[in-house]
Every structure is written in structure tokens, then in C-alpha cells.
Design a protein around this nucleic acid. Sequence first.
DNA 1: CAGCACAGTGAATCGGCGA
DNA 2: CTCGCCGATTCACTGTGCT
Lengths: 379, 379
Amino acid sequence: MRTETGAFSAPLPADCSPALPLNEILIGDCLEQLARLPAASVDAVFADPPYNLQLESTLSRPDQSLVDAVNDDWDKFDSFSHYDSFSRSWLKAVRRVMKPEATLFVIGSYHNIFRVGSTLQDEGFWILNDIVWRKANPMPNFRGRRFTNAHETLIWAAKDSAAKNYRFNYELLKAGNEDCQLRSDWLFPICTGAERLKGSDGRKTHPTQKPEALLARILIAATNPGDVVLDPFFGSGTTGAAAKRLGRHFVGIERDKTYAAAARARIDAVETLPEAAIALTPSKRTEPRVAFSAIVEAGLIAPGDSLVDDKQRHRATVRADGAITLGPVVGSIHKIGALAQGLPACNGWTYWHFAQGGKLQPIDALRTVARGKLREAEA
Amino acid sequence: MRTETGAFSAPLPADCSPALPLNEILIGDCLEQLARLPAASVDAVFADPPYNLQLESTLSRPDQSLVDAVNDDWDKFDSFSHYDSFSRSWLKAVRRVMKPEATLFVIGSYHNIFRVGSTLQDEGFWILNDIVWRKANPMPNFRGRRFTNAHETLIWAAKDSAAKNYRFNYELLKAGNEDCQLRSDWLFPICTGAERLKGSDGRKTHPTQKPEALLARILIAATNPGDVVLDPFFGSGTTGAAAKRLGRHFVGIERDKTYAAAARARIDAVETLPEAAIALTPSKRTEPRVAFSAIVEAGLIAPGDSLVDDKQRHRATVRADGAITLGPVVGSIHKIGALAQGLPACNGWTYWHFAQGGKLQPIDALRTVARGKLREAEA
DNA sequence: CAGCACAGTGAATCGGCGA
DNA sequence: CTCGCCGATTCACTGTGCT
């Protein structure tokens, strides 16, 4: 049932049971495999259970191309109560295997995360944080019927409320984040490009491969080099890849042999970082994009105020929602600016002006102010 | 039991029951007050239910000054199941009062949101999105044992899975956001400064006052001017303040007379924005349908005229009955457009063009003209 | 080779109306 | 109910191929 042990350079944990199969992918049912592991043996758990997505039919993009949706059998459940009993059973089994100071990370979307969160609270886990993975490049909502589903939620929990000595590398994270304590909202791109595993046909190997950067942050936050992280839904093996790169050990459980084989090959190709490099994660910062609605919300300009072009030929009115009106027409600062000039496009930030001390100022000046405030707030 | 009706300038909803007490704060138990409201009478609900906060001992900052934690009597529940039955009862009562097309927003933190989310799914609500309120200026984690709790979670849900026609002002939100559809992560500062209600002693009036900008975005997204929003945990009245400012009506329920009085005074001081700043304009989705045959009948285009795509790869002919022909095939502008491109579907209004003064114009321009004539005729 | 245009794609509970 | 048709709807990024 086991694949071969990968060559590995991380130090062996001093207190680990000899029965714990380190750096292996156990192929089979998650509950059966968990039952074979020794109690209180792992330092951390990352779990990416099926989300129970329920798309009713196919979805096409505005250009009529089809979205390749998650439609696998492993993601199908008959009801909430079936899903809940599934959650209860794997959470129980995972909890037995956790050391007292170990913590659990579970990731999910609104389809399943509220059920998982309730269930793990019922099972005695103690939630430390919920963490938001903000996707830098999510798939849009093609029908314009909802907000772009731009994040997933992680729950970070200790084994119970008495576990006060859970592992958390606070100083390390702070040092890697410009000396600022890490917030509960994390920004990462989704997994694409060279990192994304693809088969010989060029199609994605696994429908929901997680970015390695996400797992790296989790492992840096909640484990030390040489620790063991368990992943009961191993999939494409991101947990294993991040663990090996960062000098941690992993135990993976995966039902699907194809996924397990792809994960094994992927992990074997990973090289552990030199010890000195393992300490810190780079944190990317990007210039915040500021919407005109944020200017209105911040009170820098009031709904009902007038905007004019520099020669005062056109006069528009600011709306509470951050759109503007010109006569009967409502639209963005850019669209309405284009309309006023009879042009196909327009930069509303430089076209529209507001009066300040008898003088006209482009609204772009307000954006500069808002960016300053934003940086202050985030620093 | 009621406070006085506030002076208010929003238009009365045409179909609202006379028993719905508009723009009032009903003082008393939330379940009792909800039971008195007529069924299917409100357009939206915002709920900020008490959090089951678990601060075990007094928390102090590094400088030993005390943190004024949420520690009032209404915030103590002895167990998860007690909290769940509380959630179930208010969610049931709220659901009865919602119109079929109404939606619900609930806000919470990791202490309670997973319980509330599960319960509302069990009660038949259909989650549309979970939304993250990212706090620009959260309170840091003083002990350095967790991530900074920098967000709260909102659940947006329709009354049931069949409610497809829930209200959502997609186009407005997009226009206010740089012509880019709004994501599920929202950035707002927490409520501080002049906006934060304070008593004569200078202490904050309510422990968890929400920023008005957050409520404003919710109301802009999910209600129209003149709509009624219900808030069963009214607190400091942010929902009422935002509703009045944006020309919506509210119904508030609050148990604590001190909070209700502070909220009433606060709302009375709010002025409704000018209509141009809040009025809805018709979106493509809500405009009356115009058949292509009506365009032909109105003489805006003549039978026998040619239609081409923007690159002039295909040429169709207009028929007197409003169908078009492409070679031997006859069909609607949409069907023939799809056929020409070999796609499963096509919007013929934007695909087909006609020549005007040497330039190509989409036939959608003719539809705009026809709709204008229609409005004139009706006026 | 640089630069640009265009195609492809990602955990997604993604209509309304009349017959 | 279902069926059929109208007609509305996308952001950030990667990879490829042409000029």
C-alpha cells in the first residue's frame, strides 16, 4: 500500500514513533490509513477536504467557451448531513493522531467551510484564527449574478482549548513581514503556469492544486524544521512539496493512485532549501488599486458633489455608489468621461475635476491621498 | 414599545403592508417583535447577532492598560447548542418576514460565523457568497500568539435555492469599481473618530459599532431606493443611518433602550442624499424587451437590408417578419449569428451591424432608439 | 529578438419568460 | 412541471505565434 520512501535530508524527529511512515504517500481510504498511524504522533495537519460544490449545469464564459468545472465523484455528497458525518469521522481520526501541541489547518469555500467549522468545534477543536486566502487572480463571475468568488477560508485550530503551547513561530513571521505581525488575510496567486502539474495531454493533473506558497506559509507558521505534517487529502502533493523544500517531514494519504503517483514524482524533484534560507518567506507587496467608490466611502468627496472637465463643458454628479451621473446616464468615471467627449475611452481620473478653494483639481489628487491613507493603515 | 417615527424623505414602497412600522426602532425581544411583522414584507435583512466571544480572563495591552473587551451580559451563551438554537429561532423568524426576492446578510467572526452559517443552510437559506470585511486598521494581537484578527465574515444568502431573482445591483457596483466586478473581499476601516458614537463620559456607546460605509455598500448592492431593510439586532443603528442616507427604509429591533435611544438620535441627524446621488437607472437586464421585428415594423431598418458582423465575414438579409437569412437559412438574429460563428449561442444585437454614413453600427443602437420612442409614447 | 496580438484558463452552488 | 428561445455576461495571467 505504500510507495517508496523518498530520499530526504530533513533531520529525524527525536520523539517520533517508528511506526510513523515518514515522507510517504499512503494509498487508500483516509479513515483506514489514519487508523494505522500511532496516536499523538504528528506536529501539524493540513486538510483540503472535498468542497461539496454543487453546480447545477454547465457554465460558459461570455465568449461561449466552456468552464472546466470540478465535477468529480469524490466531490459529490447526498446531503448536508452526509457531508457532516464525513467531516466528523475524518476530524475524529485526525485528532487522535495529533500531538497535544499540534494544530490543524482546514481549507474550504462557503459551500463547506461553515459545516466543517461547526463540526470541528463540536469535536472539541479550539479555533485560533480563521484565515482568508485572497486570490490575486480569481476566476470572475461570468454571469454577473454574484460577487467574484475571490477567496477561500482556512480554519486554524488547536487540539483543544487547553492546548496553550501550540506551535506558532510568531517572531519569524513578523520578521519576514517587514517587522509587522501577520494578519489573518493572506494574498497569493492561484496555482498556474509551470507550478501547475499537467499530464502528457497538457491538461491539469488535479482540478484543485493549491499554490505551494500558501502551504509554505502554513508550515513556517506552525511547524519547525524536522516536524511532521499530516495531509489526509494529499491530492497533487503540495503539502509534501512544501514540506520537503522547507526541511519538514510529511505523511500523505490519497485515495486516487494517479494523483499519488503524480505527487510522488513532483516531490522527488523538489530540493530541500539550505538551512539558512528556510527561515523567511518573501512577502510581495503591490500598489493598491483604488476605486472611485473608495474615495467616496472615505469621505474625500461627497455624494451629490459636482465633477467638471477642465474647461467646465460638462458637469456630472457623484453618486453614493461611486458611479457618476451625466444627465440621465449613470456609469463609471471613465465611461461617463468617454460619453461626454464622444470618445471610445477616457481616463476619468484625469478628465474629471472638483473645485477646491476656487480652483479645479483633478480627482486623481484624491486617489493619491487615499493611497497614502491605505498604506498608513496597512503598515 | 415604539419610538417616534423619524421624519423621512424616501418614497413609500408601493406594495408594503400598512402593518410594517417603517423607520422605527422596535424595542424589545427580537423574536417577539419579529412575530408581529407581516410575512414577506421586507426587501433585505442585515443581522449582526451577538458573538459567542470567549475571552476567558481580562485581556491587557503590553502597557497594562485594560482592553475594553466585549463582555456584556447579552454575549454569554453557555454552549454551542444553546447558541445554535438561538440562531435557528431568529433565522426562522427573519425568513418568514422576507419577500421571496429578499436577501440576508449576517456578519460574524470565527467565534460564531461557522455555527450561524451551518444553521442558516439547515434552515433552507441559499448562500450566494461569503464576503470578507478586511479591516484597514484592526486591533493587533497583543500576546503574539495568533495572527492579527484583521477581518470579519459576512454571509450573503437568498431565501432559498429557487430564489433566482434576488436583488443585486451588479452594474452599479461595477461602475463604482473602475468598471471591474466587485470581489468577495472588501476593505474598510473600522469605525472610529467622529463616526463612533460616544456617551457624555467619552466612552463608546456600543462595543461593536459597524462602519456606515460597510452598510452603505450592502444596501447599494442588495436594495433599491424605497426598499425596506430589517435589522433584528439594531444596536447603535448603523443600518438605519445608512438606510436613511441612501433613501431606503428600515425596521430596527433592539432590546436595550439605551442603544435604541442613541440610535434614534443618530438617525434623526442623518440627511438623505439628493436623488441624483442614489437613484437607479435601468440596466440592460431590466429594460423592456424589444423584438427585432418591432425594429423592422418601426421602419428603423428595411426588409432586404444587409446585416454584417464587425469584420464583414458574414452577410445576412433582413426579412419583413423580423427574421434574417444567411444563404439558404432563415432564423432569428441570435440563431443566425450563432450559426455564422459555429458557436452554441450568440447575442445578435451586438453581433450584427448595419452601415450608416460609411460606418458600421451594431443593431443594438436601433434598439436604443426604439426604446426611447417607447418611453415617449408612454409618457 | 523584442514587442504585440490573441487564445486559453482557473474549487463556480452564475436566467427569465412564455407556451 | 418542462421545453424552447431570447439575450446577457469576464479578470488576471500565461503561453504561443506572428510581425
